[in-house]
Design a protein around this nucleic acid. Structure first.
Lengths: 200, 200
DNA sequence: TTGCTAAACGGAACGACGTTCCGTATAGTC
DNA sequence: GACTATACGGAACGTCGTTCCGTTTAGCAA
């Protein structure tokens, strides 16, 4: 639950370089495994992917739920930072929005697993949920507004509504082989474009 | 998935008496354990409560999900049959309704666990859900109508709406120690009574 | 560079779980 | 009472999350 991001503040022990590195590797590996195999993936699989022993995972994240929470926060942060970056790197805000939503969809896999992992901690879950909403809605709003300003989409939807819609499309994804949430989301984003631009 | 309730129909093998008896004992024990310890209760605990070995459970119910499904169907049936019986045994339909809702609340524990147990079988879950609605809504409607006819409650609510409300009150119950769904349900039922009767 | 030590590491080991297996007991039949 | 298909009990198996501990190494001082 520490919000301190490892700064060398006085009094806090300086962490070893390999420890810091492994923590990042673990977060990335866990995120990848969660997307590939779902949040029920065994800890050993994550350890293997990261190239570390299971003991290392448990020193960084005392319990499985802690790991999922950490991945969740990490993903929220990565998603939030990716928004402005995507906007800066492309000439088309609508395209940036599409790429950002892709990241968001990947992130939702972790988010949906969170509820199951935090069965006994509704307060903790709610806190993470509001953190997620507060952090990401403004980012999405910026992307939307940029696309509107560029004349690529109509201002017919709020950031919150779009994110809710995408979230709902992704609910239960991965369980039914006949359901491809990712594709539906792509269609939704394409549908946002103004008619004159709606191609491919 | 057999709908055949063990009748000695031609071609079907006659089951041994102890087998039939154990199946009933197991359904009752599992239902009790699910209510007491949640649907995540270990199979061994159910076997112990029923006084049988785990092997016996697995001969009757090949997998854990099968057991939960069987308990679910059994509870739906018991709940459905209890409605008319309660109505016949009491002079106050409103009281009968209250007792019936108590059974329904116990049943919901199993129902909520069902979704988790059937993660990979959305169709199966939906089928069971419609079975549940079709079977129980009419029973609840009869109880409601009897209470209305007796002048004990106002006809201000439909059976479906009442059951949905109770179901929603019970969602997430047992996770937060500060939340007692059973008590809220009791208040709801009491609130159904016409003002002149609303005591204790 | 070398030596020291606290910190971090890897993976075997543990206990609990769902599930399977098989030797034993028994209900049903003659 | 004897025979046999059926059902039973519970030990055993493989997998999981988690713990433990002997080994390795990063960071630092000489």
């Amino acid at each position: 639950m520490s919000l301190d991001a490892g700064g060398a503040g006085q009094g806090t022990q300086r962490k070893r370089a390999d420890s810091v590195r492994n923590e990042q590797v673990l977060l990335a590996a866990a995120a990848a495994v969660f997307v590939a195999s779902g949040v029920d993936a065994p800890v050993r699989e994550i350890a293997g992917k990261a190239g570390v022993g299971v003991g290392t995972i448990y020193r960084h994240f005392p319990t499985r739920a802690d790991l999922i929470i950490a991945v969740y926060r990490h993903q929220v942060e990565a998603c939030a930072e990716a928004g402005p970056a995507l906007l800066a790197d492309t000439k088309s805000p609508h395209s940036a929005l599409g790429q950002w939503i892709d990241l968001f969809v990947e992130f939702l896999v972790t988010k949906h697993g969170l509820a199951a992992a935090l069965q006994n901690d509704r307060d903790g879950f709610d806190a993470l949920h509001t953190y997620f909403v507060d952090r990401l809605v403004p980012v999405c709003a910026d992307l939307l507004q940029a696309a509107v300003a560029a004349g690529e989409i109509d201002p017919s939807i709020s950031a919150y509504q779009l994110m809710r819609g995408v979230g709902n499309l992704c609910a239960g994804d991965g369980k039914d082989p006949g359901y491809d949430a990712g594709h539906l989301v792509k269609l939704l984003i394409r549908g946002l474009a103004r008619p004159a631009l709606r191609r491919g």
